[in-house]
Design a protein around this nucleic acid. Structure first.
Length: 565
RNA sequence: GCCCUCGUAGUUCAAUGGAUAGAACUGCGGACUUCUAAGCCGUCAAUGUUGGUUCGAUUCCAACCGAGGGCACCA
């Protein structure tokens, strides 16, 4: 990568002056006028060396110039002591050529080759309609998975649905009351709603539901068990359809019905070893020694709680992938403290199995809707599905006057709806709460999923037209100056790498938007296809490079690309 | 009460301790008989408060104000 090359050059220059730096900070100046890269080493070293930052910067700059690096056209000192680097035209053009030839391989790195990473996300309660939170978790988890793959990791996507417990009991109770069909997803949703309401009223019904819960755990009533199993099958196949729409395919599913008994046994076993202890009839883990808090792992009836199930889940996961290096769990940010305690307990219980491995909890924020539209249209419960449906309805309206045929309209509407939703979730830093604005997300103007999709589709249209005209992309005849597109696009590999290292898909989103904007400006400024212009093949190569990089961005973000828009 | 997040234009988001805080939406004003106008160009507008560390703070530290979340048998 070019950034590494420049860092090395600085290191060499600094060393030649008899100084040392542990880390070279290289950044892209906010203004393209200030060059393509800048470093602050001179300012950082000046004090220790007892010289003026600007003087030291000049000395370092001279030492760098002496190295005659072909990729660097100009090195200059500016401001309080920055050293600015301007990349050479030859480098920028050669990078375009490289992108065109590497295509979908451009920018991938091998930093995680040989590493096995488990990513657990989505993890819904079966029987309960998919909540918006599950949708957010799925979207972030999928993008994280794809980022890791782009760095060479072997990713195992894991889904951990809750198929037993109070939620399921509420649904089964509701099915009996409504005489609902467990094979009908709508009936399941309704059954859960009724069961949940009844439970909250805390009367006789609550006791009935608790008895059902116990019976389901013990598998003591075949009628109830059958209802549960049928409902689970329905929920699962429905989930699979939705995940397919969202671009997710899980490698493995573990169920709470598996992790619960396993977790319970492990906790009991480790209570005698002193890791857990009894307190008020329950079995707890005391985290206070590590600045955490106490959590209940087995309740006073001896049933495993969510905590114990996590312990069991770890056993399942590490059993399935014993060679794993990192285990990532994506859940809502309200579980931050919960996971600190649970991970602490797991590390003690599985001392050997967790040695040298990383357990990581990645929190995602809440999604709130700004307009009251959802509630008026779909009832009080806002599910992941109804969100997608509503957005898709709105897109369908917009697509109508574009003159597509019926099937194209449907495909485009779905891709754009999912693009809009995913974008609004992925655009901001993971973990902070998300405000979803229908009007804004679907305004189709700027800073949106559709903008990225539109730019890419537009670029592809140009390429297709050029092919018909017999023009072939080439960087042979490049112009004397380059524009913003060239000065942004070569950054893709570093952005991709940093997004992976920081678990920050939003960095890629920001990059994709900036690249799109620069391409759209370029597009508006001149005609790309012109048989008489010797530079036309270069502009085509540039277009091809942009399309290729944007397609990669969309792929990593798991945003679908429609054929036309 | 204790702990964890967070506070940036009117709104929704950016900014690995750096230079004139960057976009989008909204408002106002433009261009175009041209490859997709879901596009392009211009313009108005912001770091909650008070201190501290630093050559340099939106970023780090402290206090305060404000929002959200968590803290024993839900997940």
């Amino acid at each position: 990568m070019i950034s590494e090359k420049i860092q090395k050059a600085i290191q060499t220059a600094v060393a030649s002056l008899g100084m040392e730096v542990s880390e070279i900070v290289l950044e892209h100046p906010g203004e393209l006028l200030h060059g393509d890269y800048a470093t602050n080493v001179a300012m950082a070293l000046a004090k220790k060396a007892g010289v003026k930052p600007k003087d030291l910067a000049e000395q370092i700059a001279t030492a760098i110039r002496a190295q005659n690096i072909p990729e660097i056209a100009k090195v200059e000192v500016a401001g309080p002591g920055f050293i600015n680097f301007h990349l050479s035209l030859a480098f920028l053009v050669s990078e375009i050529a490289k992108i065109v030839s590497d295509a979908s391989q451009y920018g991938l790195n091998r930093t995680l080759v040989g590493k096995v990473v488990m990513v657990e996300y989505t993890s819904p309660n079966l029987f309960k309609p998919l909540h918006i939170g599950n949708l957010v978790g799925n979207i972030l988890g999928e993008s994280l998975s794809r980022l890791l793959i782009a760095s060479g990791a072997e990713v195992k996507r894991i889904n951990y649905p809750s198929d037993i417990g109070l939620t399921v009991a509420k649904g089964v109770w509701g099915l009996q009351k409504t005489n609902g069909n467990p094979k009908d997803i709508k009936a399941l949703g309704e059954a859960y709603r009724i069961g949940n309401t009844a439970y909250e009223e805390a009367g006789e019904e609550k006791k009935e539901i608790e008895l059902i819960n116990k019976a389901l755990y013990e598998d003591s009533n075949s009628t109830l068990t059958t209802l549960r199993k049928e409902g689970i099958a329905t929920s699962l196949s429905h989930l699979e359809t939705l995940c397919k729409k969202l671009g997710t395919k899980f490698d493995t599913q573990f169920f709470e019905s598996q992790s619960a008994p396993l977790g319970r046994d492990i906790v009991i076993e480790n209570t005698s070893r002193g890791i857990f202890e009894k307190s008020d009839g329950a079995v707890v883990y005391k985290g206070e020694a590590e600045g955490l808090h106490t959590r209940v792992f087995l309740n006073s009836q001896g049933l495993p709680t969510y905590e114990a199930k996590e312990v069991g889940l770890f056993k399942l996961k590490s059993g399935a992938y014993p060679n794993f290096n990192t285990s990532i769990t994506v859940t809502g940010n309200e579980q931050l403290d919960f996971f600190k305690v649970v991970f602490s307990a797991i590390k003690k219980v599985f001392k050997e199995e967790t040695k040298g491995k990383v357990l990581h909890h990645v929190p995602n924020g809440f999604l709130t809707l700004t307009t009251g539209k959802m509630s008026s249209r779909k009832g009080n419960v806002i599910t992941g599905e109804s969100l997608i449906e509503t957005v898709q309805d709105m897109v369908r309206e917009k697509v109508k006057d574009r003159g597509f045929d019926v099937s194209a309209t449907e495909t485009v509407a779905e891709a754009v709806a999912i693009g809009a939703i995913k974008y609004s979730i992925l655009r901001q830093q993971m973990g902070s709460n998300i405000i979803f604005d229908f009007e804004k997300s679907l305004s189709f103007e700027g800073d949106s999923g559709p903008y990225l999709q539109y730019t890419t589709v537009r670029g592809k249209t140009v390429l297709a037209k050029a092919k018909v005209a017999g023009l072939i992309p080439s960087t042979k005849n490049s112009p004397k100056t380059t524009g913003d597109v060239e000065r942004l696009i070569y950054r893709f590999p570093e952005v991709l790498l940093r997004a992976t290292q920081d678990y920050a898909p939003h960095l890629l989103v920001t990059f994709a938007i900036e690249l799109s904007a620069s391409f759209n400006a370029f597009y508006a400024n001149q005609t790309i296809i012109d048989e008489k212009d010797p530079e036309s093949p270069y502009r085509l190569a540039l277009t091809s490079a942009v399309v290729s990089v944007l397609e990669q961005c969309l792929h990593v973000l798991a945003i679908p690309l429609p054929e036309k828009m």
